[in-house]
Nucleic acid binder design. Structure first.
Lengths: 182, 182
DNA sequence: ATTATATATATCATCCTGATATAGATACCC
DNA sequence: GGGTATCTATATCAGGATGATATATATAAT
């Protein structure tokens, strides 16, 4: 999916600044996709130039000004068109996997070259990390208003449930089988 | 993990060509990490210049020549040093997650903008893909000789078991809950 | 004879990331 | 008060990885 479509998609959930879009990638979307500031800001400027989004400078008390972008009708049309094209391309491509770069699995792969103590720490930290993730995906309390729209999506409920199931089975496996690494 | 260390690590399993390293990333490692030709070939040349690997030109019948790289003592030392440094960096970084870019999850996220039929196809293809993956991870028969070393690693048994558990729980969840997307 | 496919190496433009710069504002501490 | 650290916020850019492309040999298919 191209960055334009992705940014438009996130703005379709409600007006946001570039910084807030980045926060979504660092937070609730971090396990699925990410874009850097160096991509987000130029993309928003381009989308604004081409009238796919409008921009309001917003003064805030206690914080610097921010530029809040709102998706336009033209932007929504482009987004829907592009999403349809992306879905078709995904289907046609025959490549249904995700692009993953996992430092953790590489360290596991070469575990025999690591001191037992180091490997133990790596595994312990990973387990703690996954337990935290699990809490986050299960958490059902109030969220910041700009994330509420995300939370309300039907698809997000499905995704959170899936993530929960995956993490639980992963943790379960690791607890029962980490002895195999020794 | 830097590309040098990763290539050395793969060569530590046995001599290989750049093309064969790429095949590992396309095959058994595809769910964990990947490097492109544009990274692999220059890396191997650099490692050879600095005597971390040696290179033999190999004539093959029925195939073009290939350059088979073998890790040297110096290379193994560097690899072990770097792996230790990478593990320490991983622990110190506080970032224990993986870097993921998932077209599938983005399409799910924006599912409400897709026709039901398109979404169905996306999900069906993903399920078929995961079933194939599952077969691959479970498969215990003979493998090409250059992949046997990988298969023999203790850590690989652990990783394959983990991948199997994850995929099974993911498939199970999707079968039971895909109605939630409608 | 031509097209397609697989093996094999190499290079390069394009694009993205990670780092850095800048800046306003708050908060803590001595 | 002054120093430092942190958070919010936007922007830019060097460096590096990817995806595409080029080249070449050999087999298989049409």
């Amino acid at each position: 999916m191209q960055k334009d479509t992705l940014c438009l998609g996130l703005l379709s959930l409600g007006p946001r600044s570039g910084y807030e879009i980045k926060q979504m990638f660092e937070g609730p979307l971090s396990d699925f996709y990410s874009l850097s500031f160096g991509t987000i800001y130029p993309t928003l400027n381009k989308l604004q130039d081409e009238k796919y989004v409008s921009c309001k400078q917003l003064s805030q008390s206690k914080k610097p000004d921010k530029k809040v972008y709102t998706i336009t009708k033209k932007g929504k049309d482009l987004m829907k068109d592009n999403l349809l094209g992306d879905a078709s391309a995904y289907i046609r491509s025959g490549n249904f996997g995700d692009q993953i770069k996992s430092e953790f699995f590489l360290l596991l792969l070469f575990a025999k070259y690591l001191p037992q103590e180091t490997l133990d720490t790596v595994l312990n930290e990973r387990v703690l990390f996954l337990r935290q993730k699990l809490e986050q995906f299960k958490y059902d309390g109030p969220v910041p208003s700009d994330l509420q729209a995300l939370r309300n999506e039907k698809s997000v409920a499905f995704i959170r449930g899936l993530a929960t199931a995956l993490i639980e089975s992963g943790l379960n496996y690791m607890e029962k089988n980490r002895g195999k690494l020794n």
